[in-house]
Design a protein around this nucleic acid. Structure first.
Lengths: 245, 245
DNA sequence: CGCCCGGTTGACTATGGTCAATACGTGTGG
DNA sequence: CCACACGTATTGACCATAGTCAACCGGGCG
């Protein structure tokens, strides 16, 4: 059973300063608070299927969710990875275009659609923040497209590890140099869906990076990186360009 | 030489109702008009390099531009294709993360960065429209990710053709059924950069679709499609899902 | 005319996919 | 306690798709 979250005051919310409400003042927060409620999902549960009505929009408070698309013959591609503070749903569209799935146990802070859309129109701080977050997602999608279109399997794995390490370091406020540990929130299959690979190739390339001493496994889901720079060198990214810095 | 565009009144602008200014009333339009100017680029010219300062934001009025990223060894991936009415640049970021290139002769309607950012804060109609356009771009990026990660070379080509056909049909307000013609704004190499392929594979798959009677070439850049549904069937997309409809 | 650019085609190869066997870890039930 | 099953992961053998390298085509232009 997913651990339930008691209704929390926004002031104590762990994502208060990174989510869509980040720029809100006390008054705006109060208005959001009126239309919000929490929902919990267990790992593996669907949050929405493509084509479903989605009655709410909201933020991931805890856990990890994925956004993915499927071709008619079953091939699937993950197109979004939602970590705490990320936003779910599109204002103005009541139907999900994507499958949204809880990857781990997830808590969402949900806003009823209509009131939230109304609030967007007269609460500039929410709209501004949502624009900023959407632009960030677009940048992330473009980095992801480079990975999908042009990187080798090994580079894809290294890139995914650095992406997760960076996001974990932001959330946990840890430093990103020298030796670090990465907790993978994804199965090998989910990593494959993220990277446009098969799970066998994911497994092989992780083994290869391990054999080459770039990473060490601690169980299947925890990865030790003795030298983060070395991992970055495996991503194929330009070390000087804006991407890495 | 690129055909120059005389300073045009917004009222006569061909993208007036689809660009970032779409929702503006006369007063708001006047404020935009104060900070706007036009720039022309010839086919092949850079509009910005990754890492450059980008002193303006703006809209594509005429022509086609690409957004792309390059790995240190030269592999490049297109991550955005800008057609008339599409927006260039990110408010709040003065430096381009991407290479932006004129694919054909291009005319931009440019806004000086600072005044435009100021205007965003007190002109909700512009901010709302920009959010909507950014969400559309994110959807397009996600469809693109599915193409890059999971589709075969033949499906990628068919997908690109349908995408261009759809965008041309919106711009030209033409119907999308039965026999249609597609004008490719891209070279084979640019198509390869779009799809994460080599230009040889692009050429081979176009030849294959031609040999199979799905398309007919009229010169190198114009493609006749006798039955658009047949082309869609080649994309691998779910024919019922939200994607195709 | 000859060059250059964009495009096509061919021969060969490499990367990653497929299919299948095996391993490992965890929870269930005898 | 062990046996077993299930889900997840690893590894191997083989194969298919797309990449590489190279030759060639054709139109436009100096």
């Amino acid at each position: 059973m997913a651990q339930s979250m008691s209704d929390t005051n926004c002031g104590e919310c762990p994502i208060r300063h990174r989510a869509v409400c980040a720029k809100c003042d006390a008054d705006e927060l109060a208005r959001l608070e009126e239309i919000k409620y929490y929902r919990n999902y267990e790992a593996g549960q669907p949050i929405a299927w493509a084509g479903d009505d989605l009655a709410f929009l909201g933020s991931v408070v805890r856990g990890v969710a994925s956004i993915s698309q499927t071709l008619e013959d079953g091939r699937t591609q993950m197109v979004g990875l939602l970590l705490p503070s990320d936003f779910i749903g599109r204002p103005g569209r009541g139907v999900s275009l994507y499958d949204v799935t809880a990857v781990s146990d997830v808590t969402l802070c949900c806003f009823r659609r209509r009131p939230f859309e109304q609030l967007l129109l007269n609460t500039p701080h929410v709209a501004e923040r949502l624009l900023d977050m959407t632009l960030d997602e677009l940048d992330a999608a473009r980095e992801w497209m480079l990975i999908l279109g042009r990187k080798t399997a090994r580079e894809k794995i290294a890139s995914l590890l650095t992406i997760i390490a960076r996001r974990e370091s932001v959330i946990g406020m840890r430093a990103l140099k020298g030796p670090i540990a990465i907790d993978l929130p994804l199965t090998r299959e989910a990593m494959a869906d993220y990277l446009g690979l098969t799970l066998e190739t994911v497994s092989r390339q992780i083994s290869a990076l391990k054999n080459d001493g770039v990473i060490f496994l601690e169980g299947k889901r925890r990865i030790q990186v003795p030298d983060f720079q070395e991992l970055i060198a495996e991503t194929g990214d330009d070390m000087d360009g804006g991407m890495v810095a």
